[in-house]
Nucleic acid binder design. Structure first.
Lengths: 207, 207, 207, 207
DNA sequence: GATGAATGAGACTTCATTCAT
DNA sequence: TATGAATGAAGTCTCATTCAT
């Protein structure tokens, strides 16, 4: 086996092929998340995931008990990542407007929805109640993060005293229709994010 | 109540007409639309649709060439209906706010998404390019209706000069996440619709 | 109803539409025979036959009890016709060569096989033993007609004393591969028939 | 004897290898060819082939994309084999008569037709144009082999100067009506083959 | 005579899942 | 770890057949 340098110190620059390979299970998880977000649970075949990872189906089952498991794990870990990065941004400094803009920008770059209800279409019979609950919970936590941020912003008089749940919902659902907006509103994510924020902040009513 | 097959000896052929009011094909179309909107293409079995219509699978195929066809037809006719009713409301008199409120109210009462991109998840291989195009077109026409309404409202100084495409998008996508909002924001459609409109008109920014 | 001239005397020239229509059952029989000969039992749908006759499937079942019945009837009547016309020709005067040539010419113009074994492929479970027997019998009678003619010709010293069964078989099977021969040997039926007869009579061996 | 599932608890997955000699895919190919030649495309169910191979339907689809594919593959490989063995015999030494006799003998022992046009009855809608073309081509190549042999034999003065295409056709079509001839002419393949050759060489005409 | 609407059995095909190696 | 070969359940679709009108 080709090991060079036995320590944990990573070389700078592009890693060699051997080193850059993440563990198979991680690769599967990432590919699965991407596929599931794009095509929903029923729209993805285990074989497709395996192929994209350049392994066989059986390998997927070596690491995950079932397609449902893989689905739940992959979506949970994705939501976790998004949750963490969103949280970090929202807790940062700077005007609320800017922070929402940053969040929007990074979400729009994903170019695939995180709408759990859409992703989970048709999983009623495949997932246990607990699994479904967990996934909806993951989505809800993300939403709550926004609600909290809106509340704090209102407290700090950064935004007016609109219902924070409603503000968060509108913002949240807009970010979930990324695909449509990039196609029909503005194809540039940055421009789109800015337009969204401006409209959201100024409102559409005559003053 | 209409119970079928009281024994195991169901005769073939056309049953006595009974009190059937609606043509079977219409019934199938409606049931299919409801199911597809709730569970997506892959999440619905033809047999389920047939069962709900109290006919056999073969009847569905008597009226529609394939599941894909039924899918397209049912969604197109649903979009058509929504389009017409939305158009009627938007072209009515009264303040723009009120008209948007009415549209929102009726859409929220549907309690299922019209988000084509979400509904069509995983249909890439089942639908022809033309079919996909048609369905996306149907969604786009609905969106354009809103954009036009926003433009006219701006012309009439009913709303400020925000980008109409952006305003329509935000409004549009909020209406498509009905399910989430009714569960987590306000369970009453009327209240929810009003909250949405208020937030949209006043904006969240400090004035 | 449009009846003109009540007797049975038929007018000369092209009959009027109404008059020229043969009874529906006859039309069905003819179309069925043509389709079955071209595509075999399983390769033909009752619906196709009905369509070609410009009636509905149910009409076919009004006249015939089942697809198998229609198959048997149509093939039997076709074989009957071919049998009769072949018999007439073979019993005529003139040299044996000429009579075989005439038979060959008329068969080649059919441009579809009468090979019962081929046509009946896959009917084991659909036809009763009696039905199958009848059909094979029909083919065999046609073959016997040839054998008899060969025997008589040998008696009359019109042909040499080859085994008549073998001569009939070769002639018979050549006529059944019409399709192939017209495509690859000679596209003109008359020429093809003559070539066949010449080869058959002279033989290929050096004398 | 290899009995499967002694109870109702058949385990999933790959069974212990046992004494399987031939690869499963080869076995399927052979069985399929036999069945298709005997019953035509529509007359054979995938399940039957699987059963005869003592595997499940799914295994057949593991090796072949569709029934049509299996059909084409199996027939092509059969034609290939027949082509090769025929070619070998025809290119051998000895009198032309003897070589044709050997070919006839081996073909008659197959006891099932190779008449592509007959086998392909009713496959118009199931096969692509290319697939149909390939199969007809396979038949044509076999025919050409005969034509060439007839031509060479004529050159070598082994046969008279009859049209080689016609001679090949007659010989070819006789070999394709094996089933009929064994039943009605001579039940012994060797005898039948000899009769065919004799009639073919001497011709039926008076000299 | 003729038809439209319906049925049921069965065919083809897909796919998650398993297991010997 | 990894895989190729296999399974069974289920889903889509077809088609001969029936029957009230």
């Amino acid at each position: 086996m080709l090991t060079r340098g036995s320590g944990s110190t990573k070389r700078l620059g592009r890693p060699r092929i051997a080193e850059q390979q993440e563990p198979t299970s991680t690769r599967i998880l990432k590919v699965a998340a991407r596929f599931f977000m794009e095509n929903g649970f029923e729209g993805v075949k285990v074989e497709e995931i395996a192929e994209e990872c350049e392994v066989t189906k059986a390998v997927v089952y070596y690491y995950f008990n079932s397609k449902a498991d893989l689905f739940v794990e992959s979506m949970k870990s994705t939501m976790e990542m998004v949750y963490n990065s969103t949280k970090k941004i929202l807790e940062g400094n700077g005007p609320f407007y800017d922070r929402l803009l940053t969040v929007a920008g990074s979400r729009l770059r994903l170019a695939s929805t995180l709408d759990m209800h859409a992703i989970m279409r048709g999983t009623e019979k495949m997932l246990t109640d607990i699994q479904r609950e967990e996934m909806e919970q993951a989505e809800f936590r993300l939403y709550e993060l926004l609600v909290d941020a809106f509340k704090r912003a209102a407290n700090d008089h950064e935004i007016n005293n609109i219902e924070p749940e409603v503000g968060a919902w509108i913002y949240f659902s807009s970010l979930n229709s990324t695909y449509f907006a990039l196609q029909h509103v503005h194809s540039n994510p940055q421009v789109l994010a800015k337009s969204l924020l401006d409209a959201l902040f100024s409102g559409i009513g005559q003053t």
